[in-house]
Structures are given as C-alpha cells and as structure tokens.
Nucleic acid binder design. Sequence first.
DNA 1: CCCTGATTCGC
DNA 2: GCGAATCAGG
Length: 168
Amino acid sequence: MTSPIWTPERTRQLMTLWKEGRTAAWIARALGPGVSRCAVLGKVYRLGLARGPEARRVRTVLTSLQTKPPRKAVSIDRLASRPCAASKSKAGVAPSAAATETPSGPTATVLSVGFGQCRWPYGVPGEAGFGLCGRSVARGAFCAAHAAVGYQKRPISAESLLRMAGLG
DNA sequence: CCCTGATTCGC
DNA sequence: GCGAATCAGG
C-alpha cells in the first residue's frame, strides 16, 4: 500500500492514455501523486511502446485545447466545486433553446476532430467510447448547447455535467 | 526557461 | 523492474 507500484490497472491506464497521445507528464498527473513523469517514461520505455506520427497529431490537438489533467486524482468533485470568477454583469449565457438542442453523443474523436468542430467530451478519456461532440462550433471550442454549459460563469451541478457527458 | 520523449544507470 | 537523472530536441 506504500510503494507506487505499476499495478495491472495502472499499467492498463498508462497504455491506453499513452496510445491516445497524452504526454508523460499528463499521464503522471492523471495517475496520481505517486507517479512521476519519469516513472511514466520509464515504464513506457520498458513496455516498448512507440509513438507514431498519428499520436503526434493528437498531441497537437490536445495542446491547442490546453487540455490539462486534474492536479490530483480524477475527481468529479472538482467539476462541482469549480470556483470560477465571480464576475459582475454578464452571467453565463444560458439560452433555453440551446438546452433543448443538447446533442446526446459524440460524433468525433480526438483523432478526427477538426477546426470548427465542438470539443465537448463524452465519456472518460482513456476508456472505451470516449469521444468529442463534433458538431459545428458556435462559440470558442463548443457548439451552442455546450458553450452554454462550458462558458457559464456559475458552477454547474456535477449531475448535469455527468449527464451531458453521457455518464449519468 | 518552459516543455517534450528517449536513454542511461544505480537501486 | 523501477524511477531519477540525464540527454537531445522544440
């Protein structure tokens, strides 16, 4: 219970995330406090996993999204307790029309998503079925419905987020 | 300087 | 096998 050992579970996660094109540091942070970037790189090297040119593309996409793993463990609580700026006048736009049009699943992947396509994630990165919304961008990185959720200044309930990610 | 992955090397 | 240190590169 003490040593940060490469359990089969962790190794599995490592391989999946690595194949998705995540960086070593990203994976290290995602796997928890006990795992360093060096540990990830060392393990990857030992496993003989290789980076293809395709993975490089993925990383570029992720970088452009400024995707960052949670600093500690993956936690839904963080979603619910997002501080978010208080802000004075402009509350988040929450068009009721958009809510009714909320897409219900991914049409793109981190590999296929391109400019002008909504980056809203469905599912859990590293797990089967993970994908991105992929519908036409309305604002920033998201389609109208997801921008209404992603860009609102007030915190949103974890339940709502999970539902929109197809995890509810 | 920040970051990246690759490789080495002592444990 | 493990991971810190170190390497070369962007």
